[in-house]
Amino acid sequence: MLIEDKTFKFSLSIIKLVKDLKANKEFVFADQLLRSSTSIGANVVEAGAGQSKRDFITKMAIASKEARETRYWLRLIKESKLTKIGTESYLDEIDQIIKILTKIVKTSQETI
């Protein structure tokens, strides 16, 4: 599934940013960002093993919520200038992921 690969690669890319935040002693932001960003892919993978259509939709909706939370943390990190690493590419990627997940959830709900 394309979204599985996309969310996995996004989680991997976030690790660089998290390492920089921790090096700058921004542990709370680093931990929150790592938790929410890796949760996206974990929920997508769980959705693929869903026991029912409703279970699939629920897991994808959770992934979408985690993606939105990740975007929130990225915006806070950007605006507060907690790192010298540019966050624009991360924000662009998370926006794409949110769009894909939203489409998956909406399309799946229409076929119930």
Results as ranks from 00 to 15, higher is better:
Ile98Gln: 13
Thr87Trp: 09
Arg54Asn: 15
Ala47Gln: 09
Leu2Cys: 09
Lys84Trp: 07
Arg75Phe: 15
Ala42Met: 13
Ser11Val: 12
Thr87Gln: 13
Leu34Lys: 06
Ile98Met: 13
Lys19Ser: 08
Arg54Met: 10
Gln32His: 06
Gln96Thr: 04
Thr102His: 04
Ile14Met: 09
Val45Asp: 05
Met60Cys: 06
Ala23Gln: 11
Ala47Arg: 07
Thr83Leu: 05
Val105Ala: 01
Asp55Cys: 08
Gly48Asp: 10
Leu82Lys: 11
Gln32Ser: 02
Ile85Arg: 08
Gln51Gly: 15
Asn43Met: 02
Gln51Ile: 09
Ile14Gln: 02
Glu46Pro: 06
Lys22Pro: 04
Leu34Gly: 04
Met1Gly: 10
Lys103Ala: 13
Lys106Arg: 01
Trp73Tyr: 15
Asp95Phe: 00
Leu21His: 06
Lys106Cys: 00
Glu88His: 04
Lys59Ile: 12
Glu26Asp: 05
Leu74Ala: 10
Asn24Lys: 13
Thr111Ala: 14
Ala49Phe: 05
Ile57Asp: 07
Leu91Ser: 15
Leu101Met: 12
Leu74Cys: 07
Glu66Asp: 14
Glu69His: 00
Phe27Asn: 11
Gly86Ala: 13
Asp5Val: 12
Ile62Asn: 08
Phe8Ala: 09
Arg54His: 12
Lys19Leu: 02
Lys53Gly: 00
Asp5Cys: 02
Ile57Ala: 08
Lys22Cys: 05
Lys22Thr: 10
Gly86His: 11
Thr7Pro: 04
Ile57Tyr: 10
Leu82Ala: 02
Lys59Ala: 07
Ala63Cys: 03
Lys16Ser: 13
Ser11Asn: 10
